[in-house]
């Protein structure tokens, strides 16, 4: 999977590394801003009220 991505990135290795890191950062950001908040709300893992 990662090797496949690496092979399909353009440019010499420093450019590839840069693009790769940007991709990883974008995915982590998407997880933090959208996926994790959704998981937290949907699965009721952090409730503090009675009723």
């Amino acid at each position: 999977m990662y090797a496949w991505v690496w092979r399909h990135l353009p440019g010499p290795w420093p450019v590839r590394l840069f693009i790769f890191l940007v991709l990883v950062l974008a995915i982590v950001a998407a997880l933090f801003f959208w996926v994790f908040p959704w998981v937290e709300d949907t699965f009721d893992i952090n409730r503090v009220t009675v009723g």
Binding site: L31, F32, F36
Partner: peptide, 14 residues
């Protein structure tokens, strides 16, 4: 790695 990231999110990100 994603599970670990979720832990980071709950402990620190929120």
């Amino acid at each position: 790695a994603i599970v670990l990231l979720f832990v980071v999110y709950t402990l620190w990100g929120t």
